[in-house]
Amino acid sequence: MEHIELFFKSIFIDNMVFATFLGMCSYLAVSKKVSTAVGLGAAVIFVLAVTVPVNWLLDQYILQPGALKWLGAEYADYDLSFLSFIMFIATIATMVQLVEIVVEKFSPSLYNSLGIFLPLIAVNCAILGGSLFMQSREIPSIGLAFNYGISSGIGWFLAILAIAAIREKIRYSNVPAPLRGLGITFIITGLMAIGFMSFGGMLTGGDDEGKEQTETAKVEQAEQKEENKLAENTTTINE
């Protein structure tokens, strides 16, 4: 259930392109033709599925505060989380290189279709964004991290496929000259994002209860704090 929920949530509700604008640069640059868009989209799914679990392991066993406990008790209070940017990007760059070599060796036909996009992907915000969101949303297990990588990749794939199809058609319509090309693409993406927002209602059923609970808990905490402050004040006055 957890897996299905995360899967649909990352494809539709937290869609990389429409909700967080990740990977917009390549999204705009490579969406002129459907065939190239499919190639890049597939490469993104592939690389996300590899890098998110690897970075999850890295985060869990090296970077998090206290993650080095497995080395011995004296390492337990190290906090290397400030290194996460550089570690993540290094992992991504090497994984992309590795994937490129492996694919070239074992499947030349796949390499021919994905090949030119793979180096591009190392600097695609969607890939680093996937790992950073994985870290900030505290995804609990490696299975879920793998799921998150694949499903957010699929979300990105759907987005670029849709915009490429629309851009192929829009060539035949009469767009105002200053809006042609980039301008109209931005506005269409905005409208598509509004459309995708309607998926937001899909998973709210269970979430609301949880939210209410945490909110009441927060209010209680705040009240308690105020009481404590009042108590402190009265004691200082008494003194």
Binding site: F21, G181, A193, M197
Partner: peptide
């Protein structure tokens, strides 16, 4: 405040800029 409007605002900025400077207009 919702994210889609950012795209549309940038789209409008591009529109204004390119209406002022005709050299920047693209073919498609």
């Amino acid at each position: 405040l919702l994210s889609p409007m950012a795209l549309i605002v940038v789209g409008i900025i591009i529109w204004v800029q390119r209406s002022k400077n005709k050299d920047l207009i693209e073919d498609h």
